[in-house]
Write a protein that binds this DNA or RNA. Structure first.
Lengths: 331, 331
DNA sequence: ACCTGTATTGCAACCGGTTGCAAAAAACCG
DNA sequence: CGGTTTTTTGCAACCGGTTGCAATACAGGT
């Protein structure tokens, strides 16, 4: 089945080293030898075994792409951008699905067995310790959509969730709402913790406004809908900042089912700006997270860390902005 | 950084073979040696290099997962199921994003360089020739969501799109509609070609019913919405079978925006039953594609082919069924 | 204790490449 | 043209494992 270096060398009448060299960037080969080798390789349909060469070069060009968010529609966009971005740089994503797993040990072991050059942890719900386990194992790692800390142990790329919370608060304040609320994702998610904190911080400047906070059990449609249904049993707020878009859409659904109007009776602002938020029959006002930039930066950072592993941990946060659509009344 | 076999052997005071054997299933090692080796390995934090061993065993446990559907929400579910299913069997998905690429040559070369044990092409829009390119290169391959042919050159797992077309037709007929239509995806997609064929075939038995056919430019919300807007300029049909769910939701949006009621003025039936179809504010009547079974079977089949490469190409089709929701009037 | 059959072990070659080094070839130069 | 410098080449060792084979250890039977 497999055509090897040796086969090509024999056919071209040169040494194995010569063949190896024609296929390695910047090695010393004469034009004549190269031509002979290339012809032989073409005839035989040879292409070098990346895994075998990784053994000596120490580089596999494999990047572990680890996530536990296989249910949030935004992650389809995330995977699309990551896979394309990695491919453009000649890197290959080895996908790891971490649903209902929180112990990093298995993933670390597995990805080390495959000698990945680096790892990208793409998750807004995993704790920082997860990515740190990779760093501790000596694997270059970037936590995308992770939490910013002042003394990071690991590269983080994402958004300033606290600032987003503030931004949402300001959007509601600017519209003159007097009773507002945060409908968060699971309390264990760092993203929800930070968004809540920013929201409350900004609201603290407006003591005349009533603020309340509740949490859905997951970043999911069903959880958002269930939580909003619960809220509608009592006296709901005038406007809600929801933990993310999919939660927002669940809440939206509950509100419409209850026969209330959006944004007249209840306003909603989400966070992410996933594809469905743009759908005209959803038309969700939301805070856009600049996915493409975050992912671009994550890849840059993991590549840079592979090249200089001693590199100091760094945090890169990207600014978000409100996308005005139909679920929050206009100013 | 890396602890190797040799390090463990030295520490345990045994040969390298002994270490290798304790880590290979079914090899001959005495309990005493095994204990010594395991202790040494634990002390050193050793875990075997999967790539190095693949060199001699010829197995990498890497499976290429190739797709060009990174925009259809159903594929998030698909990736979730594939990655989990593969992981459960100790296989690792190497993800390849084929957006706007139609030439298999690059993917074939790349996946061969990484010596993947097998490939799963997960796409309802790629031509059969794509998967065949892998088979021609001697790589075990399964085409998931592919087209059934009577003399397959490659394993295919999916649904009978022609039967689905008929099923949709019957659903519309049963509801007494007299003017129906198929709003397909891109004409180049084999799935659309087959659904259309089945739909028309079944409708041919009802000459009293008027049938028309149009195509959206992609399986996407925007394309579905645009096409329905165009249709609404003229005299629309009473009910539409849409090429897939995301197209249906686009069409739904256009209908609602035009101030028409669903299902009273226009009925819609989709295909896939993706997560959003269940969302109560969408509530799409659709034909469910049994994703989990399809993916399970795809993995089984690729594994079986890896074990017996000479295995005859096989087609496995799974039955679909109508999921009644709110976009088609009840019988 | 001795013989035989089975289990365990280490040696050495191999998987498909890469690379330091020294020899050979080519290019340069007066 | 001979001497020197620079390029190109092949040899052989190595990357981190696996495996056939022969040697050794052990167990069972009498």
């Amino acid at each position: 089945m497999g055509v090897t270096l040796k086969d090509v060398a024999e056919r071209a009448g040169v040494s194995r080293s010569a063949v190896s060299r024609t296929f390695t960037e910047g090695a010393s080969v004469s034009a004549r030898t190269r031509a002979k080798v290339e012809k032989a390789a073409r005839d035989l349909g040879y292409s070098p075994n990346a895994l075998a060469s990784s053994l000596t070069t120490g580089r596999t060009k494999l990047i572990g792409l680890v996530s536990n968010n296989f249910h949030n529609p935004i992650f389809l966009e995330v995977f699309d951008l990551f896979t394309r971005g990695l491919q453009e740089r000649g890197l290959r994503p080895l996908l790891v699905n971490l649903s209902n797993e929180t112990d990093p040990a298995n993933s670390v072991r597995m990805l080390r067995q495959y000698s990945v050059d680096g790892v990208i942890v793409a998750s807004s719900t995993l704790p920082p310790s997860f990515a740190e386990a990779f760093r501790d194992a000596g694997v270059p790692v970037v936590h995308s959509f992770g939490r910013y800390t002042t003394s990071p142990h690991v590269h983080v790329v994402g958004i300033d969730n606290i600032a987003c919370g503030r931004m949402a608060a300001q959007a509601l304040v600017a519209r003159g709402h007097r009773r507002v609320a945060f409908l968060g994702g699971p309390q264990s998610a760092t993203s929800t913790q930070d968004r809540e904190r920013g929201f409350l911080e900004a609201m603290a400047l407006h003591p005349e406004i009533t603020v309340s906070v509740t949490h859905a059990s997951a970043y999911s449609f069903d959880a958002g809908r269930a939580e909003m249904q619960r809220l509608l049993q009592g006296r709901p707020a005038e406007a809600y900042f929801c933990g993310d878009d999919v939660l927002s859409i669940g809440a939206l659904s509950a509100i419409q089912e209850a026969g209330l109007r959006v944004p007249e009776d209840i306003g909603i602002i989400g966070l992410n700006d996933m594809a469905m938020a743009r759908w005209q029959n959803i038309d969700l006002t939301t805070i856009r997270q600049p996915l493409a930039e975050i992912i671009e930066a994550s890849i840059d950072l993991v590549v840079a860390t592979i090249e200089r592993p001693e590199r100091h941990p760094e945090t890169r946060l990207f600014p978000c902005r409100v996308i005005e659509r139909g679920t929050l009344r206009q100013i």
